[in-house]
Design a binder for these strands. Structure first.
Lengths: 355, 355
DNA sequence: TAGCTTCTGGAAAGCGCTTGCCAAGGAAAG
DNA sequence: CTTTCCTTGGCAAGCGCTTTCCAGAAGCTA
C-alpha cells in the first residue's frame, strides 16, 4: 500500500542525514580532487547516500556543470543491421568514456531527422552522430544547417558516416569507388548484361553507389539499359518488390547489383520464389557486408565494409579534441565474392523471368 | 575564426530580444493553454526565438517540471537482431508519445546492467525497460532490486521482456512451453536422437527453453544424452564453436535444437563448413524467428515470436497508468517449420561428424 | 461612477546540484 | 606569543527553466 510518488532522494537529504552541509556532501560524492574532506565526514556522507539509495539527479548536475554526458546517435532504423552494427561500435567507445547514448530511428523520414537533431540539441548532447546517409533535399539541408550551426557554435560536436551536405567530421565509405570495383569484378566474371536494384535516389549513398557502378560499366563500354534499373525502398521488402518488378519486365541480364545488402536479401527471396537460380541463372551482389549475408542461401557476394569499426571511428572523431581542420576518414570497401556470383556461362538463360 | 564555445541561447535572451519577461516568453513557447498572451507579444517571442535558433534546455525543463520525457531501454546487445527488433517496436511507441529513448547495451554483463539502470535512474527516465532476460545470480538480483525499488517508489515505471526476479510488469514469451512444442514437432518428424546447443545457463530464458525442450522429450520417453548438450555463448560465434564441439564429440543425433536463432546461424555455418548437410544429415531448429532466418541456407525452422510487437507491448505497459496489480502478458511462440528440419530418414547417418 | 470580474504581464521562488569565496581553527614560522 | 599560511566546512550565488502569486489594466454590471 505504498503511495505512488515519493519524490527522488535529494542531496540535501543525504547531507542532512550525515550532518554536513550540501557543499560537503557534493564534494564527497564527486570526489572533487582539489578539496579535502575529513575522512570521518566522508564516511558519514557515503554511508548516508548508500542508506538512502541516493542517485544524483543528472539534470541538475548537467545544469550546474553546464556539460552533459550524453551523446546522440541518429540512425535511419536501428533494426537494420547496417545501423545496428555501426551503432554497436559507436556505443562501445561511448560507454568506455562513461557517456550515455541516446538513440533515434528516423525511419528515413528527413523531417524526423531534423526533429531529432533538435531534441538532441535540447538535451545538450555532447555530440551528435549522423549515422545515415544525407538526403538530397534543399529543405532538409537548410533545416539541418539551422540546427547544426548553432549547436556547433555552442560547442557541440557533430560527426557523420556517409556523405552529407554539412561540412562536419566524417567517416566516408568510398561508395562510388566501391561500386565501381564491384562492377569491374562482375565484368571480370564475364558479365555484360546487368540489372540494378536501387534505393531512394534522395539518399546520397544510393546515388553514389549507383553512379559508381554505372560509370564503371560505361568505362568498359557496357551500357546499362534504362529498364534494367529498378528503384524501391531501401529495405528487404523494397528488394523483394523491386525484384518482382524486374521479373515482370523480363529484363535480360546475367548479374544483379543491389545497392545494399538488405535489399539483396529481399531480392534473393523473390528470386528463389520464382525459380530463378542464383548464381546459375543470375549472379547477385550487394553492398555493406552486413554479418548475416555470408549465411544466406547462397552466401552473398558484396562489398565489405567494417561496420563496427566505422562506428568506433565516428564516435572517436566526435569525441576527439576539435581541430581547426575538418576531419575526414575514408573507408575503402573491399570486394568479397562469395557464392551468389559466378562466371557467366555461355548458354545461361538471359531473360530474367519466372522459371 | 569563430570561437569554439559561445554558450547556448537561453530563454532570457529570447525574452529580452522580444522585450518581454521571462515568464511571458516561457508561456508563449510552451503554449500554456490556461494563459492568454496578447497576439502581438506572442509573435514577438516566436520570431525572436526563431531568429536566435532557440532550443530550450531540456535539463532545465526537466528540473523545473520535475518530469522528464525520456525512457530507457536496456538490452544485452543492440546489434543482436532479437533486441534490435524489440527495440524498434518499443521505440516506435515511445516516439509516438514524444518520448526520447536512451539505449544501452550491456553485452550480457550483469554488472553493467545494474550500472545502466542506475544511470537511467539518475536521468529520471520515465520508464526503464529491461529487454533482456534476467540473470540467475543473487548479487545481481539484489543490486537490481536496490536500484529498482527506490526508482519505482519515486514514481518510475519498470517493465520487462522475459522473466526476471523482480515483480514488474512484463511481456513473457512462453519459452518453456514453446521449446516443448518444438520438441514435440521434432518428435513428430520421427526424430529420437537429439543434440542441443544452449547458452549461458545464468540467463533465465536459456534455462527455460532448455528445460522445456528436455522435459517434453522425457515425457515422450526420449532421453537427452548428457554429452549431446553443449553450452556456449549466446551468439553467432557461440553457436559456431558449440557446433564444432558437438562435431568433435561425434554425438549421435538427427536433430539439433539451438536455444536461439542467433546461435543457430552459427551452427549452420559450422555444419556447412564440415560437410554436414541440413536437413539431410541433420535437422536444425532455433528459437525467436528473427526476420533474417527465413533467408538462411536452408531457411531455418524455429519458434516464431512477434518481436516488434513484443517491443510495442512492453513499452505500452511501461507507459500505461500504473495499476495496483502487476501486469503480465504472455506471448505464445508458434512452431514455424521451414527447410532446416525434415522427417528423419531410415538410413541417415546418425553420428554427427565431419563428412 | 462605483464595484466587480476578467485579462495579462512580470516578479520571484523554486527545481537539485556545483563551486567560488569566506571564515574558523590549527599548524607552521618568526 | 604573534603572524602567516593552510586546511576544511559552509554560505550563497548561480545553471535555465516553470509556475505561483500579485497587480495593473480592461471590461461589465448597476
Amino acid at each position: 500500500m505504498t503511495r505512488t510518488g515519493g519524490p527522488h532522494v535529494t542531496l540535501e537529504q543525504v547531507a542532512r542525514r550525515a550532518g554536513v552541509s550540501l557543499a560537503t556532501a557534493s564534494r564527497v560524492l564527486n570526489g572533487d580532487g582539489s578539496r579535502h574532506v575529513r575522512d570521518e565526514l566522508k564516511d558519514r556522507v557515503l554511508s548516508s547516500a548508500r542508506a538512502l539509495h541516493y542517485v544524483a539527479n543528472a539534470h541538475a548536475q548537467t545544469l550546474a556543470r553546464a556539460t552533459s554526458s550524453t551523446v546522440g546517435l541518429v540512425t535511419h532504423d536501428v533494426s537494420d543491421p547496417y545501423f545496428a552494427h555501426i551503432a554497436r561500435g559507436a556505443m562501445r567507445v561511448a560507454t568506455e568514456q562513461g557517456l550515455l547514448v541516446m538513440l533515434a530511428s528516423t525511419f528515413r523520414d528527413s523531417e524526423r531527422e531534423v526533429a531529432y537533431t533538435s531534441v538532441l540539441r535540447a538535451q545538450r548532447a555532447r555530440a551528435i552522430l549522423l549515422l545515415g546517409s544525407g538526403f538530397e533535399d534543399r529543405a532538409y539541408t537548410n533545416a539541418m544547417r539551422a540546427e547544426l550551426t548553432p549547436y556547433r557554435s555552442a560547442g557541440g560536436r557533430v560527426a557523420a558516416v556517409s556523405h552529407h551536405d554539412f561540412s562536419v567530421d566524417a567517416v566516408l565509405p568510398d561508395n562510388r569507388g566501391g561500386a565501381a570495383e564491384l562492377a569491374r569484378a562482375l565484368l571480370g566474371l564475364g558479365h555484360r548484361r546487368f540489372a540494378v536494384l536501387t534505393g531512394p535516389p534522395r539518399l546520397t549513398t544510393v546515388k553514389h553507389r549507383f553512379q559508381g557502378f554505372r560509370d564503371a560499366l560505361a568505362e568498359a563500354g557496357v551500357e546499362l539499359a534504362e529498364d534494367a534499373v529498378v528503384e524501391n525502398e531501401f529495405s528487404q521488402t523494397g528488394g523483394y518488390d523491386g525484384t518482382l518488378e524486374l521479373l515482370r519486365r523480363k529484363v535480360r541480364c546475367t548479374a544483379l547489383f543491389c545497392v545494399n545488402d538488405v535489399m539483396a536479401v529481399g531480392a534473393l527471396e523473390a528470386l528463389r520464389e520464382n525459380g530463378v537460380r542464383v548464381p546459375d541463372d543470375l549472379s547477385v551482389a550487394g553492398f555493406d557486408d552486413i554479418p548475416i549475408v555470408r549465411h544466406l542461401n547462397p552466401p552473398l557476394s558484396t562489398m565489405h565494409l567494417p561496420l563496427e569499426e566505422i562506428g568506433e571511428r565516428v564516435m572517436s572523431l566526435a569525441l576527439a579534441e576539435p581541430t581547426r581542420r575538418r576531419h575526414v576518414e575514408t573507408v575503402t570497401p573491399v570486394v568479397t565474392l562469395r557464392e551468389s556470383t559466378a562466371r557467366v556461362r555461355r548458354r545461361s538463360r538471359q531473360a530474367l523471368s519466372r522459371a
